[in-house]
Simulated scan of single mutants.
Amino acid sequence: MRKSLLRITFRQLQVFRAVCTHLSYSRAAEEMALTQPAVSLQIRQLDELIGQPLFDYVGKKLYLTATAEELLKASEDIFARLDSLDMQLADLQGSLQGQLSLAIESSAKYFTPHLFAAFRQQHPEVSLQLTVVNHAQAIKRLSVNRDDLLIMSQVPQDMALEFLPFLNNPIVAIARPDHPLAALASLSLQDLTGFPLIVREPGSGTRKACEEYCHEKRAHFAQRMELGSLESQREAVLAGLGLALLPRHAVSHELSSGRLCELPVQELPLYRSWCAVHLRGKRLSPVAQAFIAFIRNQRGLIEQLAQRFSAGPPVAG
Rank of each mutant, 00 (worst) to 15 (best):
K3F: 15
K3H: 14
R11L: 14
F16T: 01
F16Y: 00
A18M: 10
C20S: 05
Y25E: 13
A28M: 08
A29S: 07
E30A: 12
T35C: 02
A38E: 00
V39I: 04
L41G: 01
L46K: 03
L46N: 09
P53Y: 02
D56W: 10
Y57D: 09
G59W: 00
L64N: 01
L64A: 10
T67F: 09
E70C: 07
E70L: 10
E70S: 13
E76M: 11
M87E: 15
A90E: 08
A90S: 14
D91T: 11
D91N: 05
G94A: 08
G98N: 02
Q99R: 11
S101T: 05
S101E: 12
L102A: 05
A103Y: 04
S107A: 15
T112R: 00
A117D: 09
A117L: 02
A118F: 06
Q121S: 07
H123A: 13
L128W: 01
N134R: 00
A136K: 03
Q137I: 00
Q137Y: 01
I139E: 10
I139Q: 06
R141P: 00
R141W: 08
V144R: 12
S153P: 02
S153F: 04
P156S: 04
M159Y: 11
F163R: 11
L164S: 12
P165W: 09
I174E: 11
I174D: 09
D178E: 09
D178W: 01
S186M: 12
Q190P: 04
L192D: 05
L192N: 06
L192P: 05
T193Q: 13
F195Q: 10
I198G: 00
I198T: 00
R200D: 15
P202L: 00
G203S: 07
S204C: 07
G205K: 01
A209V: 12
H215F: 13
K217W: 13
K217Q: 15
K217S: 00
R218G: 06
R218T: 15
F221C: 10
A236H: 10
G242D: 07
L243C: 14
A244E: 04
L245K: 03
G258W: 04
L260T: 07
L260Q: 06
C261Q: 12
L263Y: 08
Q266M: 09
P269M: 04
Y271R: 09
A276W: 07
H278A: 10
L279H: 09
G281Y: 08
K282D: 09
S285T: 15
V287K: 02
V287F: 08
A290S: 12
F294V: 11
I295S: 02
R296A: 15
Q298F: 07
G300T: 03
A306E: 03
Q307M: 10
Q307Y: 03
F309Y: 13
P313L: 12
P314V: 03
V315N: 07
A316L: 09
